[in-house]
Amino acid sequence: MNHKGGWALIKNTWQSWLQHRGFFFLLAFGWMLPLLVYLFIWSAAAGEGSLAGLTQESLAGYYLVLILVNQLTYSISNWTVGDNIRYGQINRWLLQPMSPLYHSLSSEIAGKVVFMLFSIPITALLAIIIQPRFNLTWSQGLLFIPAVLAAWALRFFWGYWLALLAFWATRADSLLALQDSFIFLFGGHLAPIALLPAWMRSIAQILPFRYMSAFPVEVLVGQLTTREILVGFAYQAGWTVVAFILYRLVWTRGVRHYEAIGG
């Protein structure tokens, strides 16, 4: 693999993204809003009391961190994979002495930086307005980092293998919309997992979507027991491996199929 070429590409992509930062700030704003809606709804629902042990302040803390984590793990490049296959961009990539994965990774890294330029100040401003409360400990902070990295990897590769189905079906990217809906329902967006009805909670526990977004947040804000954290990491690692294997499988099969039909 040509890592140096990959890094040059990342720098390049980052520069061109910075030039269009207005556009990306808008995207970031759009992703932030649904989470803000549910932050306000649950705050209103909790009122002066608490729901399942969550007060207004802790709900605010949960959602503000989730806004950042969601933007860190959301993979915008997944959406362009299908187009690149459909419009033949992939031909050029296949001829380059570098894994095409780098093209997606470079947009990922470049994108995160640009999104954070927008999201961190906005979240900080919101934190001043709505006054969240955290119980931060060092161990939670340390565990948060691997949890968020794995959440990104899981969400990226899961979306990537879905997007690569475009080798066979042109509009495979509608599966990404489905993935977003599942993350909304079972990934802690609509409600912190603790507030879901029991049947949804058990689904959320098993499916990969919670581990793509809510799990790192729960780790950081201290909603989980040590046992729950360990089980969570196990699920997260397991699903990430599955997602990576699926990606490799779909990619090799897909390229073969693509070459066979001649693009």
Binding site: I41, W42, A45, L51, A52, S181, F184, L185, L190, A191, L195, L196, P197, M200
Partner: peptide
């Protein structure tokens, strides 16, 4: 998702 959201909220 819209209907399910309401179900979840008014379950609490």
């Amino acid at each position: 998702t819209g209907v399910l959201s309401l179900v979840v909220i008014f379950n609490q």
